[in-house]
């Protein structure tokens, strides 16, 4: 038996009117604490080079990304290989503080839906009770919601891409949902 880490669906892809891919191994850290505290701000800066994001938003940079999950929770996204180092950095920066930082990389799956701007918005609009109209949901926003029957979080790295984080245990369900949503012939044309 090999010990090499494998992502939930090992990079599965499907092409419809938009392209769906499982993004492979992604480093993710859940950080809980007082988001207003200087130490937390500092730790996030050290780990990702980013500021603590505003309500329901996401800050992205070369070093990583940090997303607002709830009033006391952030999701830090870095390279899979760098998670242990980042975690150590956060723990050192927050020593003495009341906080929780956990490596959840292997408990999550990440998907990317890319294609036309209208296509990716429509794909998500089919599955989530979120207003995907341009203007209502834009790059930089981060939204935790429901995708059919499971919890998921979505954001748009750019106008033609949506990324999704869900629990690893429901990765296949998520992939199948997205596969059906992007099926050729299933275009509704809501945003085009």
């Amino acid at each position: 038996m090999s010990n090499a880490a494998v992502s939930a669906l090992n990079g599965a892809t499907v092409q419809g009117f938009a392209r769906v891919e499982e993004m492979g191994l992604q480093g993710m850290i859940t950080l809980r604490g007082d988001l207003a505290s200087a130490k937390v701000k500092n730790a996030v800066k050290e780990a990702t080079g980013q500021d603590v994001p505003a309500l329901r938003s996401l800050n992205t940079g070369d070093k990583g990304a940090v997303a607002w999950m709830s009033p006391d929770e952030l999701l830090i996204m870095v390279d899979y290989a760098g998670v242990t180092d980042t975690l150590a950095l956060i723990e050192a920066a927050l020593s003495g503080e009341h906080f929780l930082a956990v490596n959840v990389s292997d408990a999550r799956a990440m998907f990317r839906v890319s294609g036309s701007a209208a296509g990716v918005r429509e794909t998500l609009a089919k599955l989530c009770p979120v207003d995907m109209t341009p203007g209502a949901f834009e790059p930089g926003m981060f939204r935790r919601t429901r995708m059919a029957q499971i919890p998921a979080a979505i954001w748009m790295p750019d106008a033609e891409t949506v990324q999704i984080v869900c629990f690893r245990s429901v990765a296949e369900y998520t992939f199948n949902l997205l596969r059906d949503a992007v099926a050729e012939g299933g275009e509704v044309g809501l945003f085009s």
Binding site: R56, P71, P129, R144, T145, R146
Partner: peptide, 12 residues
């Protein structure tokens, strides 16, 4: 009131 989302019932 915690995250400001206006959502429909099934999200809650």
């Amino acid at each position: 009131p915690c995250c400001g989302v206006r959502g429909e019932e099934t999200e809650f």
